[in-house]
Amino acid sequence: MFLEELEIENIKAKIRSIYGSREKKGYLYPYSHFISLTILKRAATLYELEKLLEKTPLKLPLRKLAKKNPQLPLLALDSLYYILLKNSLKVSRDSRKEILELINYESLIKLLYWILVIGKENLRNREILSILKSLYPKERALTISLESLATKLKLDYNKIINNLKLNKISEILLLAESNLIKRAKHKALFNAITAVYVYYYMLLCRNERRNLEKIIIGRELKLSPQVILSSLIYPP
């Protein structure tokens, strides 16, 4: 289920291209599991996409959600991914607890992103709260704040605020991602012969993929090596 993140990103990209009613198909990750890429590319409306997702675990009422807020289908997909990821864990109880903690941390990063995008006031909506439940407990989401999230993610609140003033969300996400890997390494070192280490390895692979993507894009855009290097997340 770990790799389905790419499929979720593809579906999100497809939803955005439907919103933008662009004929151009756009870029998608060359990965598919539930829906083949050619079929996904062919979907021209939210209805068609909803029909495609119906037979998969990613089934969502996309049109209904989009009517309330166009961002909701994207948020719901992110949320669904973490539900599926948590459900797919088949490991010992101890490892499960550790891995769940890492997944929860990752889902909090996503929640932080959505708070920054939609705004925390807009998240306090019954519909959205029910979608958020995999990212954050529903009852606690009512009192959600940027400060509490920063504390949970062990990020410097002032740093977040400073970056937010400059609209530099990418910087905040980069810090959080880097913290996730550090956290995973810490857990992996204490659970060296369990599934936690495997999960840490998978996180490192994902990080490597993202770094490689950044290097390729940077080289293509002829950005200076310093700029490219500053955007990478180094394994601790």
Partner: peptide, 13 residues
């Protein structure tokens, strides 16, 4: 560079 090709082009669209 920071957000990746897929996200960038889909949001720009």
């Amino acid at each position: 560079l920071k957000r990746g090709e897929v996200e960038f082009f889909s949001i720009v669209s």
